[in-house]
Write a protein that binds this DNA or RNA. Structure first.
Ligand SMILES: NC(=O)c1ccc[n+]([C@@H]2O[C@H](COP(=O)([O-])OP(=O)(O)OC[C@H]3O[C@@H](n4cnc5c(N)ncnc54)[C@H](O)[C@@H]3O)[C@@H](O)[C@H]2O)c1
Ligand SMILES: NC(=O)c1ccc[n+]([C@@H]2O[C@H](COP(=O)([O-])OP(=O)(O)OC[C@H]3O[C@@H](n4cnc5c(N)ncnc54)[C@H](O)[C@@H]3O)[C@@H](O)[C@H]2O)c1
Lengths: 256, 256
DNA sequence: AGGCGCTTGTGAAGACGTGCACAAATCGCG
DNA sequence: CGCGATTTGTGCACGTCTTCACAAGCGCCT
């Protein structure tokens, strides 16, 4: 179990292994596969078929196979995928083998919940700093970590490399915080504030917005309500969803 | 201001206006436009061009125009869009005109933050019930709402129609909770637990998973690190991102 | 009234993502 | 040793999404 290393690499025999450039949609699904694989490993499974893994991850099996094929050719025909090996490969590709330090800015309502979340450390992420601008919050200890003032960010970043910045401040402060994070070299930001951030090229921003999710659900409720109001034929309105429904991001009706 | 009503409707002159069936990608962006429009309205703007609105929402202007064209033909050539009218239209399409009751199940670490969040009520959503299985949590009052036992769900749903269920329980309990929600007629679920839910056809599930977002960011960090390690020519590695970079879901480098 | 500048709405092309269906590969067993 | 059962990896076709580029429409100014 040692001759399996970054096989899809084009040429490039440098010291740092070049990553196969994965489709973005694939990248977004790999963490889901990873979670399913960990569950399988905990349950004692040594191998898993694409059918089994795809069911556990809630996706199409062909899609899963295509996704995994982008990483290289792990898996054995007629058998399936070696669970431990696949975990190792996906974690490598996602860059989870090197532990990443996270700085959380804004320790309010939401920030407290995030700071107290143990699912962070579970997968290679470590909250390295809690920051807030409110003097009355500075000094508070949460989960063994002391809240420090946001102006200390440069010093903190100098002490240890911050890999990812998480913004949990009000929207009005988010852009300023983003600028501060970028200024100390952070190139990945997870933003919980409902606003658009502008950042220089090379910096990645992902947004999590509860209100948007609710509104999307609201649309589907609205649509479903307007659909059931149409056909006055029979009474079974529950199976009335038309054929090509294409629930792109939403998972809908995954088996039973 | 009264002759503008659901114009894109195909035929169907029934009592309930049929919705134009929007592309899922468009639906996911409408809430973003809506937020930008509210900001513009608060700032006193009466109209806005596609260029202006798209900049505020962080998208391509052609994309914005195509998205809005799916709703019908609001907007005036040579002028732009009427802000108030567009807000009204988007809110109608998203089903936000009828206020929606949300049931939040799992009032733990995260659930507390959600329950105390005022951004909920800001846009047509109202938390109608807080539910938990832990007897020691039942009876606690948060934000004027008393936590009730999850077994009371049928009674609560009977008293008022629950539009959306939010699951903030540990993953192990999420499927059971989802089943309970479905049993009382909920057809839209927002799931914060890191697991795949299986629900019957016609029920929409959206998932918010912090760990997945972090892992996606981690991948990009990993990729950026492996890229800067390649070219030993000059020194400027920051602009080294190759042309077709296609940050699909991630917003990257939005102006300055 | 007429022209001019500005902005929308959309056709068309290309990029991207999905899913079927099957050949190639592997294992276990007779 | 060969064969059938099983499962991967992928070519291909289809649908969706994005982006460009421009004609059509609108208002304003002369
Ligand atoms: N609470 C939720 O459930 C929830 C859900 C979705 C989105 N959000 C969003 O998350 C963000 C935070 O929400 P919240 O409920 O925790 O708000 P909050 O007001 O409780 O907390 C905000 C915190 O940020 C701090 N802060 C303000 N300006 C700062 C700055 N410049 N630098 C550092 N810290 C600063 C404040 O001192 C405060 O502690 C908001 O943008 C909100 O819209 C919250
Ligand atoms: N805290 C975070 O920042 C965070 C971030 C992302 C995801 N999550 C996820 O959100 C979920 C909740 O996280 P948390 O930190 O609030 O956990 P928590 O343990 O603090 O809270 C869970 C709550 O759910 C209740 N519960 C358990 N079983 C239940 C049932 N069958 N019916 C009703 N209620 C039940 C518990 O009594 C508890 O109050 C978890 O799945 C977690 O992985 C949390």
């Amino acid at each position: 179990m040692s001759q399996h290393r970054h096989p899809g690499a084009s040429g490039r025999a440098g010291a740092v292994p070049a990553l196969p450039d994965l489709p973005e949609a694939t990248v977004a699904r790999l963490p889901e596969y990873l979670r399913a694989l960990h569950n399988l490993a905990d349950a004692g499974h040594e191998t898993v078929s694409s059918e089994g893994l795809s069911a556990a991850a809630g996706v199409n099996s062909a899609k899963l196979r295509k996704d995994l094929s982008h990483l290289g050719s792990y898996g054995t025909r007629g058998v399936g995928y070696d669970v431990a090996l696949l975990i190792e490969q996906i974690e490598y590709v996602l860059g989870l083998t090197q532990h990443r330090a996270v700085a959380l800015v804004g320790v309010g309502n939401l920030g407290h919940a995030l700071a107290g979340y143990d699912g962070f450390a579970g997968r290679g992420f470590r909250i390295a700093a809690l920051l807030d601008a409110d003097p009355s919050r500075v000094g508070e200890e949460i989960n063994g970590l002391v809240v420090r003032h946001v102006d200390e960010l440069p010093a903190i970043a100098a002490a240890e490399s911050i890999s990812i910045g998480v913004i949990a401040t009000p929207a009005a402060a988010a852009q300023r915080v983003a600028d501060q994070l970028v200024a100390v070299g952070v190139t990945s930001i997870l933003n919980f504030a409902p606003c658009v951030l502008s950042v220089p090229e090379g910096v990645d921003v992902r947004k999590v917005d509860l209100a948007i999710e609710l509104q999307i659900l609201s649309f589907h409720e609205h649509r479903k309500a307007s659909l059931t109001a149409l056909p006055a034929t029979g009474g079974s309105a529950l199976t009335a969803l038309p054929g090509g429904l294409a629930a792109t991001d939403t998972q809908e009706a995954i088996g039973t």
